[in-house]
Design a protein around this nucleic acid. Sequence first.
RNA 1: GCCAAGGUGGUGUAGCCUGGUAGCACGGGGGACUGUGGAUCCCUUAGCCCGAGUUCAAAUCUCGGCCCUGGCCCCA
Length: 420
Amino acid sequence: MDYTPPKGMRDFPPEKMALRSWAVQTISSIYKKYGYAELQTPAIEKLETLTRKAGDEIEGQIFRIEGDLGLRFDLTVPLARYVSGTQPAPPFKRFCIAPVWRREEPQKGRFREFWQADIDIIGSSSMKCEAELLVCARTCLLALGFSSPKILLNNRKILNSLAQELKLDDSLVSSVFRALDKKGKASEEKIKSELEKAGLTSAQIAKLFQFIGKTGSNEELLKFAQKEAGAEEGAGELSQLLEYCKGYGFTPLIDFSLVRGLGYYTGPVFEITLSDEIGSVSGGGRYDNLLSAYGKPNPAVGISLGIERIISLLEGKGKSQLPAKAKVVYIAPVKEEFYIYAQVVADSLRQAGIAAETDLLNRNLRKQLEFASSAGYSSVAIVGQKEKESGAVTLRNLSSGKEQFLKISEAIALLQKEAA
RNA sequence: GCCAAGGUGGUGUAGCCUGGUAGCACGGGGGACUGUGGAUCCCUUAGCCCGAGUUCAAAUCUCGGCCCUGGCCCCA
């Protein structure tokens, strides 16, 4: 018998779930504050839905089920299907924090089952959307305890203008973008040789590198893009987006080498990194053409927080221990015959909003105290003959060792006071 | 798909090179102690990833597989 979960899948024991739930709840409560409503869709989708958007690469990673079904590999495809089918009134702002599945080789930060936390806005072309998504994601990261999220910004339209300016053949564009995306990860030489192999002239390569290597303030970069690539529209969008971000009190950094893998982005793309860490924890962009693949064209933009990366960064930072919330009270029947009374006490406490637990293993009092102590309870309510007769409990504070003989209602009042 | 390093009770590990009784710590269960805990002591539980080969004998050597960790390819 093999007790390990399938390849690339993980169990999350209680001690791990504490941190995960906290992160998920933190994020979802912020999403809600910004007015995003939760949309849940099934884990399983029809294969035709999944493959409509997937590139060849992702298509090979779909977990197939029963011939014509498969597990979702992201949260955007189900969203596109839902929106196309129901056509909700714009702007449709939804969030979704859920697992997705991909059949690929697991490695660092990459699993076959992993969680994404997406927000998307359907039905608006305004750069206000981008700014709102960014501030929302940024707020989440701050709330999770990351002090300095760094937001990188680019626009596919600028890259497209550049490609036009360079007279790049359409068939080359995607492989060129992919090579550019490696800037900072691979050496310049390697990227250059890759581009040569793809069939670019050395003049084109030089111009490309001049472009993506350009440094300066956001304003300078945008002017540069207009002048060198004729990217009027793309630069205009970004400068507007930067204005809106200013209103929220933060400033993204323009980086022309930011591409982002997926082919469906049509406008601004962004990525958030944490300055003290390597790799991005969030990314997204505008995908105005995607929805038309599912029927109705509709402008759309989204951003995704990578839960797995965030969790592993939190764990690495020693935040795996959440501020331990002590469990409140454990009801210890002195003998098994008082279990019924313990139940009554426990339920009274629960109805008063106090988490209460009682013995399921018929343990003697010593064992129960030992258990309650090691399980992190702050107090134990001991119940036996005396207590039952007068509708009371002996409430023992486990850290101080102090005991009080109290009516149930008095005990509730005391526990509520301690909890507050 | 490719490359490298690994896989020993539930967890963390020793043993492997040099084949010969699998050891330690923590955890779990019980007791010392039948209405008062965290300590201590004792008892107990439970393991060599799978398969083949070499050998009188394999956790140990060889090969294959699976899984895991990291890197590449790829990818949010």
